[in-house]
């Protein structure tokens, strides 16, 4: 279905926390060069674990890839420390707008560029970030902790952008943002993908927004990929409609309350 070159590949990945909690139960997933990929799923589906296992920051949460492998070009990521993974060009933007609160906006961005040694390039990219997020320019010297939620989300995305990633892993960027701001930020993701040719792996609960910019999507449930397909396929899938978009068979909006009990409890077959 996809003819572009494969870039990132998860092969039957299993992740355990504290040697006890099985968070991913054999997830296989492929991310091709140059597109936006969406990972959808409810709470506890393992979406964040998936991203953390790729970026390598899993072990700070006492998690570990216990079987399977994560491959990026010729490298095996699940054996590398997070700093080496960032050097390879995979940068995760964590959930919850994790700015460096006590540093200024611009300092946050510059901290994102700490691996780069081309001063002029960093300066150019700083302007590029301000170009994508004009609001940030006016807030240059402001402590990042006092920015609004939307501005903080822009800042963390900008901080990832300035590291010149090949792949950006975005963890619920729309969480807790007003719909308009979320829209604005998703538009930037689309532009980043098209103009900077950054491959994006986007984890979202906001299915509509995610599939509107993604080419391909995976649906994750309790640690398994239960459904995958192109965005248009997923958008017309009855189960996706019903569980994530709140639409009934006839396409009308319908209250969750009216869904028959046995249907409400339906789970994806693994």
């Amino acid at each position: 279905m996809l003819v572009v070159e494969l870039m990132l590949k998860l092969d039957n990945v299993e992740v355990k926390y504290l040697d006890a909690v099985l968070a991913l139960k054999g997830v296989s997933l492929e991310v091709a060069d140059g597109a936006v990929f969406a990972v959808l799923g409810g709470n506890g589906a393992g979406k964040t674990t998936l991203l953390k296992s790729i970026s390598g920051i899993l072990h700070t949460d006492e998690g570990e890839v216990t079987s399977g492998g994560i491959y990026f070009d010729d490298y095996r990521l699940d054996k590398l420390p997070p700093e080496d993974i960032v050097k390879l060009g995979i940068v995760q933007v964590m959930e919850g707008r994790r700015v460096l609160e006590h540093l200024g906006t611009e300092q946050n961005l510059l901290a994102g560029a700490h691996l780069r040694s081309d001063r002029a390039g960093v300066k150019r990219d700083l302007e590029k970030v301000y170009n994508y997020f004009p609001k940030l320019k006016a807030l240059k010297r402001q402590s990042a902790g006092y920015l609004s939620g939307g501005e903080q989300q822009m800042l963390v995305v900008g901080r990832a952008l300035i590291a010149r990633p090949k792949i950006m892993l975005l963890d619920e960027p729309s969480l807790g943002l007003a719909p308009l701001i979320a829209r604005e930020i998703f538009d930037v993701f689309k532009r980043l993908n098209e103009e900077e040719s950054i491959t994006i792996l986007l984890v979202e609960q906001n299915v509509n927004a995610a599939l509107s910019i993604a080419r391909y999507g995976y649906v994750l449930e309790t640690g398994r990929v239960v459904l995958k397909g192109t965005s248009s396929e997923l958008l017309i899938n009855e189960d996706v409609k019903e569980f994530y978009l709140g639409l009934s068979l006839s396409g009308k909006r319908r209250s969750y309350h009216d869904v028959k009990h046995y249907k409400r409890r339906k789970r994806w077959l693994g």
């Binding site: 960032v86 964590m94 540093l103 901290a111």
Partner: peptide, 14 residues
Amino acid sequence: SAVAEDHQVAQSMG
């Protein structure tokens, strides 16, 4: 300074 703020964020930035 990033490490002083948040270990996990620092790691995510490489």
